[in-house]
Design a binder for these strands. Structure first.
Length: 800
DNA sequence: GCCTGATTTCTACCA
DNA sequence: ACTGGTAGAAATCAGGCG
């Protein structure tokens, strides 16, 4: 037997003649596409037995039950842990992965059986956990090469003769990446796959080629066929799209069904299929939807491909790749404009490729650490990413995974926020507790398996008692979370040390950096996970106690800061702002670390920082001259650009030039421009997210009203969509004067609203701290009066 | 029916 | 479909007035 390399891209299972088999898809170290079979591994679940039950006896009953005999492969007694306690269990190995849930449910009702566990861990995932196999990671395996008797399009096929072993290998193989983007034609409203054609499919790949298939406008069967053929020939490892899980793939599949074209774009000649977390699986390849990753970039407020690409620096600011949904038909129908549409569509595919290249290192590292295949991990919400990581770690220490159940939601008290000292402060240092919550869980051993329920006696090793809430956690042995979190933090700090020794910008640097970022994401989400009612390991007191220790920690730190003579200006959760004083700060840091066993570190020092009276809002001037604006309108996605831009300049003037007078002047000029119609239309659009279905809103709001209008026009709008609207002239409430931005004209706009409720509101937030009133910010005269400014109210007349 | 202040609803932010 | 704390706008409610 020979050892072979495997870089794992995808893992799935098939049933062949009723026998399940695991298929590992990937590449070897020579770049060949390989498929590796494991026909031996079988799915299983656990039966947890009553303390006084006899495992032998129950095992026999399971084995001999005629209802089970055909489905059960074997039963063995094993000792596992559940919430840290040793329990007697039976491992029931099944023949068919589709039957585990049903079998578990039947057997859990047997006498002497408390419950079943882990029947809901899917077969392929089970395999990768148990065999220590990692997506986006290298392995060595021993296998026998066999003839490719499947329909799989790969270079080599192997049967495993020994399980794969993960190996350390930082470089990623050279993967073939293909991106695609489709254009669907609908005269009016959202294209409907039951009647509207796919008129353009554009593709790009990382070999520098682009390709486009265009319909003649009468059917799209040909386009679909060409697309499928192209994918088959190119045989990409990764297919990237933007919004492809929710839109492109479902659309293509439906069109394919209607046109009689089988979308066999995967490596086993089947069609893409819906899978976990709303993701579409393409067997043998990784189908990634970059829109999923846009969620991780909270700086990008409206998550269009164009905005993402520009943020990532793979598209120039002046480049346009989008055609508004509402205008697609227009472009298609006009022979001249159609050229633009075709060009932008290719450009879009190329942009998707560029974005994928810039995100792929991170995505692959996340996949590798979490242990979910590359394409699933993006689609999985943060809570599930943490959970799959935990599940893998639990397996390693013999801890069984709790079943997901419905927990009632009771909120608990969280962090402390100090009221800031309003105004401008010079030289202010920000001090941060490093990963405060994870470290609290480590220091106080707070974990689902160390929690001691009320009424239970203290264990001999002693307990940590959380302040205020008084929850107890055993000091020994180290809990599940403590182990997991210490590992994550330790691995990350090693990575950071390695990074310093690695050449900046090199491929290895990018991978290591992506890895440490992925670890950070998981670590930082761990506290939130403990308080999530949907979590498998949800134990409310763990979250509540961690928060309580957090409050204690920052309170105590502030006391120590004051004792040391530091001037505390503001604080929030795990950080606080003090007047710069390196000597006292040094003393203070040592005191904190000594007393609290938590590391606290100076972060930035602002040359100047500005606070209003509000918490969670401030603006600081960094030593390099940049502004850091936190929480204020500038940082928000639901204010018109006009107000944000104005406020940013005001803050800049205040912090750099320290001249409120100049800022006032600036605001006046700004308002003049608005009144004179010099502000771009797009800067007057307000964007808000639909957080629930349109019908479920209890009150009328502008964005919901705008959404309803769009819906009447035939556009699909769902939860999570951003609605762009403008306020127009007229009578009544805002929601009675709103239009989706695509349905309004500039001269309909209520500029008074933008002046008062957007610009002035955002300006006064800053300038009221310098004694300014709204009236001070208004221009003294209005040259724009005659052309288009509506004098709608007495108030408006007065200001003129 | 109109005005006003209090309360509720909603979104998006910070840590 | 990770947590709680928070600001702020707008809608809506409740009560007074007449």
């Amino acid at each position: 037997m020979v050892w072979h390399h495997l870089f794992l891209l995808d893992i799935n299972h098939e049933k062949v003649n009723g026998e399940p088999e695991i298929r590992l898809w990937g590449l070897d170290d020579t770049g060949r596409r390989i498929l590796v079979f494991d026909k031996v591994f079988r799915p299983y679940f656990y039966l947890v037995l009553e303390d006084d039950a006899d495992p032998e006896d129950i095992g026999r009953r399971v084995r001999e039950d005629r209802d089970f005999i055909a489905s059960v492969e074997s039963v063995e007694a094993v000792n596992r842990r559940y919430f840290g306690k040793s329990v007697k269990t039976l491992r029931v190995v099944c023949r068919d992965p589709d039957e585990t849930a049903k079998l578990a449910s039947h057997m859990s009702k047997m006498k002497g059986v408390k419950m079943s566990l882990e029947e809901d861990i899917r077969y392929a995932q089970r395999y990768s956990i148990d065999k220590d196999v990692y997506p986006c990671g290298w392995h060595l395996f021993e296998g026998k090469e066999v003839k490719n008797e499947t329909s799989a399009s790969v270079d080599k096929v192997y049967f495993l003769t020994a399980p794969p072993k993960p190996i350390e290998k930082a470089e990623t193989p050279s993967l073939k990446i293909m991106s695609f983007s489709i254009v669907c034609y609908s005269k009016k409203g959202s294209p409907k796959p039951d009647r509207n054609l796919v008129v353009i499919v554009s593709m790009a790949n990382n070999r520098g080629e682009t390709k486009q298939f265009v319909s003649k406008g009468t059917d799209d069967g040909g386009v679909l066929k060409s697309f499928v053929k192209y994918v088959e020939e190119l045989d990409p490892d990764i297919i990237a799209g933007y919004g492809s899980n929710s839109h492109d793939w479902p659309y293509l599949l439906e069109r394919g069904k209607r046109a009689g074209v089988k979308l066999s774009v995967d490596r086993s000649r089947t069609e893409p299929h819906p899978s976990l977390y709303g993701h579409i699986s393409i067997t043998g390849r990784a189908n990634i939807d970059l829109y999923n990753y846009a969620e991780d970039f909270e700086e990008v407020k409206v998550k269009t491909l164009e905005n993402m690409a520009k943020y990532l620096g793979v598209l120039k600011d002046e480049e346009e790749i989008e055609v508004e949904d509402a205008e697609v038909a227009d472009y298609w129908d006009d022979p001249l404009k159609r050229q633009t549409l075709l060009q932008r569509s290719v450009k879009k595919a190329e942009t998707i490729l560029r974005v994928s290249e810039s995100l792929l290192d991170y995505a692959m590292q996340l996949s590798n650490i979490v242990g979910l295949p590359l394409d699933y991990v993006g689609a999985a919400a943060v809570g599930f990413r943490v959970e799959w990581y935990l599940i893998r770690q639990a397996y390693k220490i013999g801890e069984m995974v709790p079943s997901r159940k419905e927990n009632p939601y009771f909120p608990y008290v969280g962090a402390i926020v100090l009221a800031p000292k309003p105004g401008i402060h010079e030289n202010v240092s920000v001090l941060d507790f490093k990963s405060m919550y994870p470290n609290i869980m480590i220091v106080y051993n707070a974990s689902p398996d160390t929690y001691i329920e009320p009424g239970e006696p203290d264990p001999p090793g002693g307990v940590f008692v959380a302040p205020e809430v008084k929850h107890r956690f055993r000091k020994e042995p180290p809990g599940f979370y403590k182990q997991v979190l210490s590992d994550l933090i330790r691995i990350r700090s090693h990575l950071k040390i390695d990074l310093e020794k690695t050449k900046l910008g090199s491929a290895e640097y990018k991978v290591l950096d992506a890895r440490q970022r992925a670890i950070k994401v998981i670590t930082n989400a761990s506290y939130g996970y403990t308080g999530w009612v949907g979590a498998r390991w949800y134990i409310r007191p763990v979250a509540e106690a961690t928060a309580a220790w957090g409050r204690y920690t920052i309170k105590r730190a502030i006391e120590l800061a004051k004792e040391t003579g530091l001037d505390v200006i503001y604080g929030d959760t795990d950080s606080f702002f003090v007047k710069y004083d390196p000597k006292k700060t040094g003393t203070f840091l040592r005191k904190v670390e000594h007393e609290l066993s938590l590391e606290i570190r100076p972060d930035v020092t602002y040359e100047r920082v500005f606070f209003t009276e509000a918490k969670k809002r401030y603006a600081g001037l960094l030593p390099d001259g940049r502004l850091e604006i936190v929480g204020m309108e500038v940082a928000r996605g639901d204010w018109a650009e006009v107000a944000k831009h104005m406020q940013e300049r005001v803050l800049e003037i205040i912090l750099k030039e320290q001249s409120p007078e100049k800022a006032v002047d600036f605001v006046r000029w700004y308002i003049m421009d608005l009144r004179n119609g010099k502000v771009t239309y797009s800067d007057l659009i307000v964007w808000k997210t639909l957080t629930k279905p349109v019908e479920e809103y209890k009150v009328n709001t502008p964005h919901v009203e705008a959404a309803k209008m769009l819906r009447k026009e035939g556009w699909n709008l769902t939860i999570g969509d951003k609605v762009g609207f403008v306020i127009i002239k007229g009578k009544g409430r805002l929601y009675e004067r709103v239009l989706p931005y695509s349905l309004a004209k500039y001269d309909q706009l209520d500029l008074e609203y933008y002046e008062e409720q957007q610009i002035l509101a955002a300006a006064i937030r800053v300038l009221s701290l310098f004694g300014k009133k709204e009236d001070d910010l208004k221009p003294r005269y209005s040259p724009g009066l005659s052309n288009g400014i509506r004098l709608g109210s007495e108030k408006q007349l007065r200001l003129m």
